[in-house]
Design a protein around this nucleic acid. Structure first.
Length: 101
DNA sequence: TTCATGACTGGCT
DNA sequence: AAGCCAGCCATGA
């Protein structure tokens, strides 16, 4: 099925394992600068579709904004080797991935 | 078609 | 330092 947010999903898919990115970064990577909310909405539309590594996306503060299954996302990140704080926060200084880098 | 809400962000108070 | 406000646009009622 064609997904309206294919560019967004592609951008998320470019995030390598063991790394994370923010909604804003993904929005820019998808060619939609400033549309971070659309990225979040797009991921919400996935409904847990594992075809896209949505769990590698966190908010600008490095915290898991995911209201859909933040605990699940936290476990998922830990399984990939990403350290997650008790407050559901990721150290962006270490794990944030920039496709431009 | 209009109204309200949302997996965000940056700036201002 | 912490909280509030406006802007971006898609989805559902």
């Amino acid at each position: 099925m064609l997904r309206p947010y294919d560019d967004i999903y592609a951008a998320v898919g470019r995030i390598p394992p063991g790394r994370v990115s923010s909604y804003g970064r993904v929005a820019v990577a998808a060619g939609l600068p400033g549309h971070a909310r659309m990225v979040g909405y797009a991921l919400h539309a996935l409904r847990g579709d594992a075809a896209v590594p949505w769990w590698r996306v966190v908010n600008a503060g490095g915290y898991i904004s995911n209201a859909y299954g933040r605990e699940h996302q936290r476990s998922r990140l830990l399984a990939e080797g990403v350290a997650v704080d008790e407050r559901d926060r990721v150290d962006l200084a270490v794990y944030l991935w920039d496709e431009e880098a």
